[in-house]
Amino acid sequence: MSWTAQPQRGGGWLRVMAVIALGLGWRAAQALLYPITLVYLASSPSRMRRASRHYLARALGRAPGLADMWRLYFAFAATLLDRAYLLTGRTAGYAITIEGLDAMRAHARAGRGCILLGAHFGSFDALRSIGGADAPVEIRILMHHHMADAAHAMFNALDPSRARDIISLGNPAAMIEASECLARGGVIGILGDRAPRGERMISVPFLGREAPFPGGPLQLAAILGAPVLLCFGTWLGPRRYALRFEPFAERVTLDRAAREASLTEWLGRYATRLEAMCRAHPFNWFNFYDFWQEEQPA
């Protein structure tokens, strides 16, 4: 069973949302979120709904009801709609509070870039709001090529000039590109909670049970050798986000002799912070598949 089909599913909806949003305006698009969420919730495969219920039960600490499912799916749809605006810099109608920007500025002042380690949580694209008014920062997102392809398609639909913001790991020069960006004082974003099929996974405690996380993102951070900040763009409500930066590591170092053990330790720290965010904002985490691998293979 493959869950890698899910980003594509999201990708298709994303394009629909983008067309609606940019064609009809935010208010009309926002009104359409209700029927869209309804259709999305009703048409989603049962194993996807089951996975969402499992997640919510863990994050909420109780059995989730239909209202909880609705909130999760609605928040997901809302963040997809917002992407169309955030990615194209149309942030005028948005209220985005920013916490911890100083930590990032300190790196920028020192003339070095940093890595932002995020998750499929809220909207990582809320990050775009730090460009523009504040110091214009070069922000590039490092992605596995399966995911990069979908992202490229979306960028091309929205704003082709932003397509280069995505660095696809499918390209041999990808990491050279990322390291050049850091050397220029830019920012490299990496999402740490989802992997393409075939990536080596390492299990760490997450919301009460061991869950497999990809080792890749922290390995990339270690190789790039730049300071790492955690970055979460929590969706608080219509056009309201709380963007938060937290220092994570001056540098991720992996013990060469005990690589697996040190990766596990870093991943454990990441999962602990992600868990705290999920408990504080349970309707913000968007991984609609059997994350804990609780299902028996069919």
Binding site: L169, G170, N171, P172, A173, A174, M175, I176, E177, A178, S179, E180, Q219, L220, I223
Partner: peptide, 25 residues
């Protein structure tokens, strides 16, 4: 090899042969 290896190779080449491989080539 993958792109991580490419970065390592690029670093080794720059150390040994004194020039940078560039991503925008």
């Amino acid at each position: 090899l993958d792109s991580i290896d490419a970065l390592e190779i690029a670093l080794a080449i720059s150390k040994t042969y004194g020039f940078q491989l560039r991503s925008d080539d």
